[in-house]
Amino acid sequence: MKVLELLTELEELVEKGNTLPFSSKALVSPEEIMEIIDEIREELPAELVQAREIVEQKKKIMVEAEGDAERIKNEAEKKLKEMIDTNEITRTATAQAETIIKNAQASAKELRIGTQHYSDKILYNLQVQLKELNDKIEANRKEIKEIK
C-alpha cells in the first residue's frame, strides 16, 4: 500500500530531524511533511475505492449464490414434475427433490456465510489499516503543532 510507504517516509523524516537540546522534540521541514501528507491524501481515495470494490464483489457473489440456489431448486422441481407418473416414482422423486433442495439451500447458505466472513475479514483489515493511518496522521499533526 502506497499510503503505508508514505507514512514510513514521514516517520523517517521525523526520526532523522535534528533534536532540540534537552528535549525529545525534533526539527523537521514542514514543507517535506506537508508534501508527504498531500501524497497520502491523494492515495486514500484509491484505498477507499478498493474497499467499495470489495463490497460490490461481495454483493455480486451473494446474487450469484442466490441465483444458483434458485436454479437448482427450479431444476429439482422440474424433475419432480417429470417423475409424477406412478406412486412409486412420485415417492422417489419427492424424496430426491427434497434432498436436492436441502442440499442446494445448504450450499447457498454455506457460500453466503463464507462470502460474508471473507468480506468482513477484508473490511476489518482495511478498517484496522485506516485506523492506524489515522492515528499516525493525528500523532504527526500533533507533533507539527507542538513544534510551532
Rank of each mutant, 00 (worst) to 15 (best):
E64P: 00
I72G: 04
K109C: 05
I72P: 01
I101K: 09
E53K: 02
I72H: 04
K79F: 05
N74E: 13
E88V: 15
A108V: 08
K102S: 12
A65E: 08
T92C: 06
A76N: 00
I89F: 12
R112V: 11
K58E: 09
R112T: 12
E77L: 15
L80R: 06
Q57H: 05
Q116N: 03
K102Y: 06
I89K: 12
D85K: 14
E66C: 11
L80C: 01
E75I: 15
K79Q: 07
I54T: 05
E98S: 04
T94G: 04
I72Y: 09
K81N: 06
I113H: 02
I61S: 02
I61W: 02
E98V: 08
E53D: 03
D85H: 11
T92S: 07
A76C: 00
K81Y: 08
A108H: 01
K109I: 10
D68R: 05
G67Y: 06
T94N: 06
Q96W: 02
E82V: 14
G67F: 09
K79E: 03
Q116T: 11
E88R: 12
K59W: 10
K73R: 12
K73D: 04
M83W: 07
K73G: 09
I72A: 13
R112Y: 07
E82I: 15
A104Y: 01
I84F: 08
T90K: 07
E88M: 13
T115R: 01
K78Y: 13
A93F: 01
T115P: 00
N103L: 14
E56K: 03
K81F: 13
I84K: 07
R112Q: 08
E70L: 14
I84W: 05
E110R: 11
T90C: 02
I100E: 00
Q96G: 01
I84P: 00
T99L: 13
R91I: 15
A95S: 04
D68S: 09
D85M: 14
